[in-house]
Design a protein around this nucleic acid. Structure first.
Lengths: 289, 289
DNA sequence: GTCTATAGAATGATAGAC
DNA sequence: GTCTATCATTCTATAGAC
């Protein structure tokens, strides 16, 4: 362990000579020998050679020693035996994506967005990795960066698209001929449908804000939401509420009730339409109707 | 550390040169240098000079170095900083400070919980690391595990305590003599206060569920929430609503409106009390009142 | 001399970036 | 493909109190 060689060779030599050293110790020792490497760098090379655990390194050493007269120490054998019992299954490396028979770039983008939306909705922003998203689209992690500069942008775009769809629908309703209370009811139904339906991109409108704690990102998202709530401002204005009712509070109560629904909604019970009707009835202030 | 001098001078010199050595190591070293001294002897002299903890010895060294160009090492500075946090907490809780001298174990636990609550509320569960929590309490990450077996348990406990406090207050209100609608209004005000107030442990009741995406953990938390909502079930039942109104939906609409409030609440504008009154007025179905 | 709260270092794992 | 940073957690040694 003295002559300078390739970084990789040095790591491997050390794996052979001190199989029980972990990444930290191995890296420290190599740094002492003037190699530039970090703990995870060590780990990376180990993994490349299937040596990422002490068990595997020992196993390899054992094999190598088989011919020669040398033997593992008692402690090393004990460690191996423990490992044998607890053996983990090798992880299947998964499917590899096709070749260059590519998709149209826009199509690929959409696929990434859709996959990301599903994962964000299910596991939240922080718990979704670029790797997960890439895998779902059959890409390697690095390739995602060809379409989106960073994870934040990916989320922002999903969020924006979700609200774009929601706004489109809401505006259509707001423009319709129905009477004001009915328009409101329809808009509420559409909102709940989006939040509990199968379209993950739309679902993100219900959970997105809560999933994010990075302030700057949050601020970017708020814009989408405000564009949407603007429509409700108008819908509420059209209702002709009595003076005694604070329009602003009315809207916020309504949106709160709607946004909460996805937490208790159960498929097969009340439909979004039923729920919307019930909510409007309560807020209409005249239970006789 | 070579020339023989008075025992006392030798002890002090060593305190300066190796401030982090404890009594055992210090005594051993001095004995090696042919001084006759025991661990408690070292401690006796330290105490005489107000140097009986590593923190105090470092503090003294720092002061001494102030003039010269020398500086404490990074590790020493970190230790001092940890000590500073510990002291601040000790002062805040009225306990006696003193280096790493312990708190009543319950007190330390509470400190960790309070710190964790703040961070969880501010940055969310996934974005809060055990390191952050430890630092805030003046501990090293590993030490947190002396009090809590895992991060999940830490969160669960914060969540549970938040709801415990909320439930306590709500039940008091539910038991009071006020008329049903007024009881409801008070309970709503209390709910909003908890969600927007300064008490992070209570605030977690508003955001906790959204911050968590791990299903199993979520299930554990739901229990707390359900215990709480049970009280609202009762409060709604007491209102004597007309038949045409679905009690269940009424409760869910109300809770939705309340839980949404922390997103738009602004200090200095409407108070939680005002908001609660407004919400109840809207839901009471008789706007003339 | 004994106990416990805490330090400190190590471990295996995974994230985002590009 | 390659890298670094950081995470939750574990293990072990020891300081300081009694």
């Amino acid at each position: 362990m003295s002559k300078r060689t390739t970084l990789e060779a040095a790591v491997l030599r050390q794996a052979r000579e001190h199989p029980q050293r972990g990444q930290a110790k191995a890296a420290a020792e190599l740094q002492r020998l003037d190699y530039t490497i970090s703990t995870s760098g060590v780990r990376y090379i180990w993994r490349k050679h299937g040596l990422e655990t002490a068990y595997k390194r020992l196993k390899a050493l054992e094999k190598e020693m088989a011919g020669t007269g040398r033997e593992l120490s008692a402690g090393q054998r004990a460690l191996l035996q423990r490992g044998d019992v607890t053996r983990k299954l090798a992880r299947a490396s998964g499917q590899r994506a096709g070749g260059t028979e590519g998709f149209a770039p826009d199509e690929r983008r959409r696929q990434i967005l859709a996959g990301a939306a599903e994962l964000f909705v299910k596991h939240g922003y922080s718990n979704t990795s670029i790797r997960d998203i890439a895998q779902r689209t059959g890409l390697l992690p690095g390739s995602v960066y060809h379409y989106f500069p960073a994870k934040e942008d990916l989320f922002t775009e999903v969020h924006r698209e979700g609200f774009r769809q929601l706004i489109e629908r809401a505006e259509e309703i707001a423009r319709s001929e129905a009477d004001p209370w009915q328009r409101m009811e329809l808009a509420c139904a559409a909102h709940i449908e989006a939040a509990v339906g199968d379209n993950s991109i739309q679902r993100i409108t219900g959970t997105g804000l809560f999933s994010i704690h990075e302030e700057q990102l949050q601020r970017r998202l708020k814009v989408d939401r405000e564009n949407y709530e603007q429509i409700f401002r108008r819908l509420v204005g059209d209702l002709g509420l009595p003076r005694s009712i604070d329009r602003s509070l009315f809207r916020l109560v309504l949106l709160g009730a709607l946004n909460w629904a996805h937490l208790w909604y159960r498929k097969g019970k009340k439909t979004p339409r039923d729920i919307a009707r019930g909510i409007i009835r309560m807020l209409r202030g005249n239970w006789a109707l």
